[in-house]
Design a protein around this nucleic acid. Structure first.
Length: 202
DNA sequence: GAGTAGATCCTCT
DNA sequence: GAGGATCTACTCA
């Protein structure tokens, strides 16, 4: 089955956790610098807007950085963390409901040589796109790519018909959000069981 | 193998 | 002026 771009209606639904689960197995494509790179998503985390302490938009916080989260679903939200890592998110739901999904890891498909150049690695191994910082780097994603509509030419998510078995998709608490108190325990993270590209303990 | 520090900079207080 | 949705390398055992 050929690649089919996900329609904007896919992102503009109410249940961000459900969308995060459905994104597992989809393909992320970026196309810039004259190179196409892509990979199959194997790890995501949902951030449920104003009610989620771990979210940047918790309590309705609205700043220059988080403004894009309040837009309609289907936009990219990239931001810099720890001064080094760019983290790529997909905005979901509709205007004024700031939900987002962090894409944490994917399995490289196309453009692997380009990914190796971008990350400075010598050969392909599971650390190439493991974890959100590495993944963004391998795909050439930087925070300037915030606000791109994900059904365009530069960057999009697609479905090639592949599906993991339901039993292969695991829900667990999110990573690196200990500061969020009880919300850090919510099972908003999804990953493919046993996949070497998944960050954290498998 | 486990634990920890350092990198490094944008954003909000 | 502080801290973060992280990663790597280095120390110590």
């Amino acid at each position: 089955m050929p690649l089919k771009k996900l329609p904007l209606s896919f992102y503009r639904r109410d249940d961000v956790v459900q969308i995060a689960r459905e994104l597992i197995g989809m393909i992320l494509v970026t196309r810039w610098d004259g190179m196409t790179t892509s990979g199959r998503i194997v790890e995501t985390e949902a951030y449920a807007g104003v009610t989620d302490k771990a979210s940047h938009s918790y309590g309705g916080r609205r700043t220059g950085r988080t403004e894009i989260m309040y837009a309609d679903g289907g936009y990219s939200y990239v931001y810099l963390c720890y001064g080094i890592h760019h983290l790529f998110n997909v905005v979901t739901h509709r205007r004024n409901t700031p939900h987002a999904i962090l894409l944490r890891s994917l399995e490289p498909l196309a453009g692997i040589p380009e990914m190796l150049v971008r990350t400075g690695k010598k050969k392909l191994d599971h650390t190439l796109t493991r974890g959100p910082g590495n993944m963004a780097k391998a795909l050439g994603i930087v925070k300037d790519q915030t606000g791109i509509l994900l059904n365009g030419k530069q960057m999009f998510l697609a479905d090639d018909g592949f599906r993991y078995k339901k039993s292969e998709i695991i829900a667990s608490p999110r990573i690196g959000v200990d500061y969020a108190g009880e919300d850090a325990l919510l099972p908003y993270r999804f990953y493919v069981k046993g996949n070497p590209y998944v960050s954290g303990k498998v």
